[in-house]
Design a binder for these strands. Structure first.
Length: 419
RNA sequence: GUGAGUGUAGUUCAAUGGCAGAGCACUGGACUGUGGCUCCAGUAGUUGUGGGUUCGAAUCCCAUCACUCACCCCA
């Protein structure tokens, strides 16, 4: 048997209804905040991610689906959305009018990791990118979008954590201070953190190893080392969150896995998905566009994992009332000699906009009734030779267990008949 | 990439070295033109795969594959 690739899955039945619901809400929210949809390619030149995300990150180091196409180009299935959106922004010269661009996207991303709860190799993300403003107003809007969307979806267990990792200058100072602090403890760090010490010092703050945690507890905090501009920027972001009454907690250990972030970083987390606590994450990336373009253009955005979002909504019981999609009307053919007639009735009802199901297996009347019951259909039309002779339809309401004959002429406005 | 756990009917799970079974689901019937409830019957398996130990293996051992969870990391 040929099976789906590890870490991919099929979504069908009531699952698709959950997905459509969530997708609709996201689209609705993008509209509310005036973010326009952008659809970008699923694969790009590998170079885009190498330079954009950063060669030292795990995403680039070991998780990318990379292959060589027939023209000898190195191609990678997108592991995240921001790099592609930024490429599209530049390529389509969206910077030309100097105005703010607000974009949202939704779609599959690919990372070759060992799958586990809430983590897949093909997973779906949505995200927004707010490009062209360096102002804290923009950061706060992006964070509000995430928080308010999740609140409106009904989530109770989510928290917003926020931090500032500074700009080029103050980050450099902070990293120096952090290294100075860590140096005497170097031998006590886990192997991973020893490696990070030179390549990605900030991430040591994020290490879950109890030994490392203990060491970093007393480490200098990022905010202490922010330059005046960055400090003010951060305070203003918090101010605008306060104005919106968005609850958050400042977490000085919060650093992100992608290299392009500056200043604001944030995560929306939950404690209800096992070890996968991040449902959305993002931040400011003022230097990313400059890596592909002649000048820096400030931007801020976030991405949310939709698979995780739906898992979490299930966990919180938010889909409990959701029913399987069902047809409005089931038409039972009492005997096979009325099949032609049943087809005509069915098509007429479909023209009126109803969802209509009929038997396609030449089954007995009894099994047709059983199927109607199993489909949970409310309305059943029973048609046999007797009905045809009398020019009527037998209408049965399955919920009320009531039944009556209706004149075939009433078919033309069937809505009136339904109880 | 690393570690642990689990693989038996469509599905959920029994069977602890001695005849592979049950619930649910499915199909049919009781009710020949009426679903759900009830009762009856039926279909359902190379016990993931390959090897080994044994008189005998779903059960023990080895390998392999798959799934799950966790680590790393991330949405």
């Amino acid at each position: 048997m040929i099976r789906a690739i590890k870490g991919t899955r099929d979504i069908f039945g009531i699952e698709t209804k959950k997905w459509r619901y969530v997708e609709q809400k996201i689209i609705e929210y993008a509209r509310k905040y005036n973010y326009g949809e952008i659809r970008i390619p699923t694969f790009e030149r590998t170079q885009l991610y190498l330079r954009g995300i950063g060669g030292e990150t795990d995403i680039v180091n070991k998780e990318m689906y990379t292959f060589t196409d027939k023209g000898g180009r190195s191609i990678t299935l997108r592991p995240e959305g921001t790099a592609g959106v930024v490429r599209a922004y530049i390529e389509n010269k969206m910077y030309a009018d100097k105005s703010l661009k607000k974009l949202f996207y939704m779609g599959s991303m690919y990372r070759q990791e060992r799958p586990q709860k809430g983590r897949y190799r093909e997973f779906r993300q949505f995200g927004i990118e707010n490009i062209g403003s360096k102002e804290p107003l923009a950061d706060a809007e992006v964070i509000s979008f995430a928080y308010n969307l999740y609140k409106e979806l009904g989530l109770k267990s989510i928290k917003v954590e926020i931090n500032s990792i500074g700009c080029r200058t103050c980050r450099k100072n902070y990293i120096r201070a952090l290294k100075d602090y860590l140096k005497p403890h170097y031998e006590m760090l886990c192997d991973n953190c020893k490696r990070r010490f030179d390549t990605n010092t900030l991430r040591i703050l994020d290490c879950k190893n109890p030994g490392c945690k203990k060491i970093t507890e007393k480490a200098p905090s990022t905010t202490e080392y922010l330059c005046d501009d960055c400090k003010e920027h951060f305070n203003e972001v918090l101010h605008y969150l306060d104005v919106r009454k968005i609850p958050y907690s400042v977490n000085n250990r919060l650093v992100r896995g992608l290299d392009y972030y500056t200043r604001t970083v944030f995560e929306v987390t939950t404690d209800r998905l096992g070890s996968q606590n991040a449902v959305a994450a993002g931040g400011r990336y003022d230097y990313l566009i400059g890596m592909f373009h002649s000048e820096d253009i400030p931007a801020v955005g976030f991405a949310g994992g939709m698979d995780r979002l739906i898992l979490l909504m299930e966990e919180e019981g938010l889909f409990d009332a959701m029913d399987e999609e069902k047809p409005d009307i089931f038409i039972v053919a009492v005997s096979n000699d009325v099949r032609d007639y049943v087809i005509k009735i069915a098509e007429s009802l479909r023209e009126q906009g109803f969802s209509v199901e009929t038997d396609l297996s030449m089954s007995s009347m009894k099994s047709q009734m059983r199927r109607a019951g199993k489909l949970n259909v409310d309305n059943v039309l029973i048609i046999g030779p007797d009905e045809i002779d009398k020019g009527v339809l037998t209408y049965k309401n399955m919920k009320k267990h009531s039944q009556k004959e209706i004149d075939i002429k009433e078919l033309e406005n069937f809505k009136k008949i339904l109880e």
